[in-house]
Design a protein around this nucleic acid. Structure first.
Length: 271
DNA sequence: ATGATTTCCTGTAGGC
DNA sequence: TGCCTACAGGAAATCA
């Protein structure tokens, strides 16, 4: 599932498109669009891509005249990049193709939890669009971050998954970060000491940075735009390791449900 | 305010 | 082989 490290890898790979103009747009499945297909195609066509940006797990393609293509990959979304000449085999899960000068971008999503949106923003309306998601793990001061969590009475796991305070962590990186910081997924945020929240902040940045460097976690459907796999799944300490020994203390990794989400943790190391 | 539940969706795995 | 069910979960909506 694409979370911050996977999305960051995708954005880095897609930066090769910056400066290019949209040559053609094809929509194979309108269901994944937030706007009518005609609006999507017409407004994208011939626009120059100025820059790429990540906000939480969202990818922003900034075009000229304020047009922004917002891409979310949901659970199984993929952004695939190919040279225009290559023969990509668009299957039934490939929902759109955007041709740039010399390169083709495909949007594929098996479960269709992701989407593509195209809107014309000014800076104010852009901020409003993303007002529900919290700060970026790498664009916030540690003290600010700690203050945010000290104000919430919610349990740390569902709080992190909600994206409300900090955006970009999904099920994998929440579990991995909580393990690294030695925090129980059940604890309420405000009960965590400032000292431990400081550890949590460092653990979060550490896990995410290492995962970015390793190309993300390739489990299920995630691949980079060039089709290659990440390798951070080999570094997972708790996620997907229920019943196996904790790498730190050997206790069996426990898996519970929290808010309908599988939650793996070490009952001894995380309190 | 918080959280549990349901919804969207499809592939995979397990039981029989 | 094939049918059925359970499960995986990002995020929004609904309910308690």
């Amino acid at each position: 599932m694409p979370e911050l490290p996977e999305v960051e890898n995708i954005v880095i790979a897609l930066k090769t498109l910056a400066g290019k103009r949209v040559a053609s747009v094809q929509v194979f499945n309108e269901e994944v669009l937030k706007v009518p297909s005609r609006v999507f195609c017409q407004n994208l066509l011939r626009k120059k891509l100025l820059a790429l940006e990540r906000r939480g797990k969202y990818i922003l393609f900034r075009f000229e005249e304020g047009w922004v293509l917002v891409m979310h990959l949901g659970m199984t979304g993929q952004a695939i990049l190919e040279d225009a000449g290559a023969m990509y085999r668009a299957d039934k899960h490939t929902h759109a193709r955007i041709d740039f000068e010399g390169q083709a971008l495909y949007y594929r999503d098996i479960r269709k939890f992701g989407f593509l949106d195209l809107r014309r923003f000014d800076e104010k309306s852009l901020e409003e669009y993303f007002s529900r998601i919290g700060c970026d793990p790498f664009r916030v001061e540690k003290e600010t971050f700690i203050d945010l969590f000290k104000k919430s009475h919610a349990r740390i796991k569902p709080l992190l998954l909600s994206q409300k305070l900090v955006a970009g962590l999904g099920n994998i990186y929440v579990d991995e970060t909580l393990f690294k910081a030695g925090i129980s997924p059940r604890v309420r945020a405000f009960r965590i000491s400032r000292n431990r929240l400081s550890c949590f902040f460092d653990a979060m940045q550490g896990v995410l940075l290492e995962a970015i460097e390793k190309g993300g976690s390739s489990i299920d459907d995630y691949v980079r735009p060039d089709g290659s796999c990440g390798s951070f799944q080999e570094c997972h300490q708790v996620y997907g390791r229920a019943g196996q020994p904790c790498p730190r203390c050997g206790t069996s990794i426990k898996k519970i449900k929290m808010g309908g989400r599988g939650t793996s943790f070490c009952p001894r190391c995380q309190r």
